[in-house]
């Protein structure tokens, strides 16, 4: 059976799986459960400046699932992460993104975060002068407030953060340093996952989280991510290399090329990519583009 056929079967299986529809509580934070449709990306086109990058992405992600999005450089992986997180430099030119039944693209950046979307940055930003602990507290309390929960007091907050820091094998002194300032590459990525652990998002998008990590840091980060896997949470791992997927097992792997998903499959697809490289994918990407080109002329 060819890969394409496998992907088709998989898609059909996905469609036939009837999860519970989104239920929303009055507090404005969604309750999710395993199998519930969390993210539905439909024919998404997006451009950076005048340049079209995403050319028709279709993807469905359900609660409890981990999806890996792989692809060569320039295929649009990071653009996809950025569209989901709400980065303003990326403009959506067509298509839609439904997140737990609401139009994700209509929400501003902070509202997405409060609704449970989290982006772990490829290049975490250094913010001199803003304490790491201050950011965590402000973010958590902003989200709690939005959910109608009381702010955590200083003691409970510190206990929570220190607990999560142990998970990430982070030194407590990092709490009192400025956000990511002077952190090593590995420390920055660990700090991203720490934020994720504290904020407990519903949908986590990890953008090239493995890049710049040595093998020890990769193990720690992966351990952190794995411990956050849960039936109520979905994750999208965006990565160039298969290496990360040795540590975080995805349920589905999608291959992005030329701004489209050209292949979808199970974890074995990643292994195949590792063996064959991306050259064949690029070819399919071009074919896909030509295909879409013809389609518009018809």
């Amino acid at each position: 059976m060819s890969l394409k056929a496998a992907a088709r079967l998989l898609k059909r299986a996905q469609r036939e799986f009837t999860g519970n529809e989104t239920r929303r509580v009055d507090l404005g934070f969604p309750i999710t459960q395993n199998g519930m449709k969390m993210l539905i990306i439909n024919n998404l086109h997006a451009a950076v400046g005048e340049k079209p990058i995403l050319k028709g992405i279709d993807l469905e992600v359900r609660a409890g699932e981990v999806h890996a999005i792989m692809g060569p450089n320039g295929s649009g992986k990071s653009t996809l992460s950025n569209v989901l997180a709400g980065r303003e430099e990326v403009s959506v030119t067509a298509g839609s993104v439904q997140y737990l039944g609401q139009d994700l693209l209509a929400l501003d950046v902070e509202s997405r975060a409060r609704a449970g979307v989290f982006l772990a940055f490829q290049y975490p930003v250094e913010i001199p002068g803003v304490g790491n602990v201050y950011l965590l507290k402000a973010a958590l309390n902003a989200q709690r407030k939005h959910r109608g929960l009381p702010e955590l007091d200083a003691m409970d907050f510190l206990a929570l953060v220190k607990d999560k820091m142990k998970l990430m094998e982070m030194n407590e002194s990092m709490l009192y340093r400025s956000v990511n300032e002077g952190f090593s590459g590995g420390e920055k990525k660990r700090n991203e996952i720490l934020q994720m652990a504290v904020l407990e998002p519903r949908l986590a998008i990890l953008d090239e989280t493995d890049s710049g990590l040595d093998i020890d840091a990769l193990k720690i980060v992966s351990h952190g991510v794995n411990s956050l896997r849960s039936p109520e949470r979905a994750m999208i791992l965006v990565t160039h290399y298969q290496r990360l997927l040795d540590y975080i097992k995805p349920d589905y792997v999608h291959v992005l090329a030329g701004g489209r998903i050209v292949r979808s499959g199970g974890p074995e697809l990643a292994l195949e990519l590792e063996k064959q490289g991306y050259s064949w994918v690029a070819q399919e990407g071009q074919e896909a583009q030509r295909g879409s080109g013809n389609a518009t002329h018809e």
Binding site: A85, E110, R112, A113, P124, I127, L135, A142, H146, V179
Partner: peptide, 13 residues
Amino acid sequence: EQWFYLRSRGIEA
């Protein structure tokens, strides 16, 4: 970038 980063954590603009 810094502004986006803070907002992406749920902090109001």
